[in-house]
Structures are given as C-alpha cells and as structure tokens.
Design a protein around this nucleic acid. Sequence first.
DNA 1: ATCGAGGAGATAGTGCCACTATCCTAACAG
DNA 2: CTGTTAGGATAGTGGCACTATCTCCTCGAT
Lengths: 219, 219
Amino acid sequence: MRLSELSARSGVPTATIKYYLREGLLPPGERLSASRSEYGEAHLRRLRLVRSLIQVGGMSVARTKDVLRAAEDETLDQHEQFGAAQVALMGGGGPQGVALEPGAKAQETVDELLAEFGWEQCGNIPAYWMLVGAVASLERLGYPCDLAQLRPYAAAVEPVARFDLEVVGRYPAGDERLEAVVALTVLNEPVLLALRRIAHAHVSGSMPQGQAPARQTLS
Amino acid sequence: MRLSELSARSGVPTATIKYYLREGLLPPGERLSASRSEYGEAHLRRLRLVRSLIQVGGMSVARTKDVLRAAEDETLDQHEQFGAAQVALMGGGGPQGVALEPGAKAQETVDELLAEFGWEQCGNIPAYWMLVGAVASLERLGYPCDLAQLRPYAAAVEPVARFDLEVVGRYPAGDERLEAVVALTVLNEPVLLALRRIAHAHVSGSMPQGQAPARQTLS
DNA sequence: ATCGAGGAGATAGTGCCACTATCCTAACAG
DNA sequence: CTGTTAGGATAGTGGCACTATCTCCTCGAT
C-alpha cells in the first residue's frame, strides 16, 4: 500500500507519517523506486500502536521511539523485554532524577514495602525511582506516606501484574509478544487510573456524605 | 513572608511564582503597599501542592488551575469534591472526546463491567469516557479488551478506592480535606503505576522465562 | 532627604515539542 | 507527453511552561 492509503486507513495525515518515518518510529517501506514505497499491514499495525502510545498513553515521540527500539531487540527474553520497555518508558530516570532532600524517609519506606512483598531485587529499575519520587512528594506536602498508606496499593497491584504477565504470555513469542508487552503495559495504565476514579465516584456516592465516612480504622 | 522568601523556601524561582500568581494558581498575597505583599504558610503549602501536581502528577498549568478552583468551592460535599476535581482533572472530556468508530463495542463492554461491579450511576463522569477511550484503543489495535480482561483491574482498584476515601475522611472537612482530595487523587496515581511496573518486574523475574508463563487460565 | 535593594506588574522572549506546509524532483498512469 | 501523486528535505506553526527585562514604586538604612 502507498503512503496515502496508509494515511487513509490509519487516519493519520501523510505529513505526520513522514514525520514518524523520519523519527524512526516507523520502519521505512519497501522501496519500489526513487519515488515509491510499498507499506504492508505491519506498517499499519505499527502506526496504530505508535498513535495509541502517544495519544492514549501520553508518551512523547522520543520515548515512543526508544520503547519500540527496545522492544525490537529480539535477543531479550520476556523479563528483559518488560525491563527494556520500562527503562525506555520513563527515560531511565535514576536516583539523580528524584532529588531527595536530606532526612526524607521515602526511600526507606519504599524499601520496607518491597521487602514486605518480597520484591527485593527491584531496586534499580526506573519504576522504583518513580515510586520513591512520588512518596517523597507526598511527604514533602505533609501527607504521611508510610507503609500503611502504601500497602493497599501494593496488594492491589500484585494480582494485576500477575494477570498482565499471563495475558502477555498468550501471545506467540516474537514480534507479536513484543508489541503486546508495550501495548498492554502502557495502554492499560489509563484503564487502571480511570477505574480507580470511577470507583472513587461510586464509593463516595454510596457513603454517608458530608463528614468523615469512616472512623473505625483510624490509627 | 516576601516573594523572595516564598521562593527560597519552596525552591521555585520568583519569576515562576509570579507566573503562577498571574495564572491564578496561587492566590495573591496580602497587599501591604503598592509594591509589597505578604505571603503566609498557606501560600507556601499551596505552592508546593501546585508544583507536585504539575511535576509529579504531570498536569498542565491550566488543568491545575481548574482543579484548584473546583476544590475551592466550599459548598460541595466530599462526593462532589471528588467529582469536581475529576472533571477538572481530565478537562471534562465527554463522549465527543473519544471518537468511537462504528461497531466499537468498547462502551458496551465498559457498561457491562460497571453493571457487574454495581457501579451503575457512574456513566457520565470524565473517567468513564477515559476508560471507554482506552478500551476502544486496545480493541482498535486488535487486543481483545473484554470483561475477562477488565475484571481483574476493576477488582484490584475497588479496595484502593475504598481506602482512599477512608484516608481522605480523616482530614478535617474544609480546606485541608479539599487539598487532600486533590493531592491524594493525583499524587497516588504515579504510586499505583510505579507499583504495577515493579510488580511486573518481580513477577516476570520469578516465572519460568521465555515461553508462556501460564496456560491454565486461558479462556 | 537620599539612595539602593528589592517587589509588583507588564510585556516580550526562549526552548521544546509535535506536528504541518511548502518546495522540488521523480516517476507512473493514461 | 502530461497531470497527479510519492518521496525527501527544510522551514514554519502553535502551544506550553516558563524566563528575562523593563519600569515604576516603596521601604529602610544612612
């Protein structure tokens, strides 16, 4: 198929497709001549994935490129694919990206949490630092973000992660699974957040209103 | 305190504070004279909240303003506060923001899910449309996003929402609770996402690698 | 009283990002 | 042979979040 057809079938303007080609988000088509290239279904799928990652997943073009590059490395196993995708997903922000002030116990709290859940060897992935940063922010604002606060979140997320891996495992190893890892990691994030907010609406609606809805579990 | 002290104690440049004042993210200080204003601890707290929402929560300046405006409306009860914060949080994107193609069963799936969880009256909040959009995206990419896919997410998120509401209820109704609603709604989102990814890393690391890690629960 | 530091307010500029528009040239189709 | 379309390069656009500068003002120390 031609560029124009790719554009028509994906809904993405040709100028934008050219831009994605330039940026390496989309592999070049098969050159038929100096002024004609042929694109296949794979291009269409990839293009749709790119658009979803950028528009639904809220990722930047540069990060999207890195994620896809990482996922294209066929030498990685599933664990490493998740890892590579993750690293790319948040720009590999390490400890330096967090700026803990002295006395912040955020990292300590996080370590305790991970220990409690047996997630010990996860101390150097970008998500770890993202978590430390978020906890530090909450603390800085005066919200106690201790184990008791984090535990329900970790407990909730564990079966989700297990389920995600199981789902990904259904895809045949190779290109398809690579794409599935990226798509499901990123595109289920809005699902998770939206459901949490819907649940907020439901739970707050079904509680006695106006005052504190629960007192029995106060510390 | 003066602008410069506010800047020093918050770490935000004075030019940026002025910008926030202009944009209405920060209420003006108490005017002492034509060229001097006094800021209080409340300003410092608010400023830190704004920075957290923007930098940690990834919100735009405009949305942050709307959220804070909504939260400042003291006539709302807790349920409505969550609602107002939510509406502001995602720009009130209604059905028109999603662009379902004909034949998309995303909305149907979502409705079924909400019915199954008894979250029936939540059909018009922005989060609902965010969810429909995300599900539609997954479908468009060829990932089956049916009840079986969504159920674990909804099940995971329900106790989290319950916990969130309970935590918010601990704060004295008024300014503090308003701020808590905003801060905890937004700033716990990175916590949730980071923990999911950490759990991915852990779960994938602890599974037999390379091939499908689980087959027994296949549909 | 004077003078200098610093704040308030207005306006313009910066850097980045995700496109988008315009050229030009080269085919392919009729 | 020619009009339409593709590809490639380059430059421009618009939005956003600041950031820099400039002017005027006033407070406080000398």
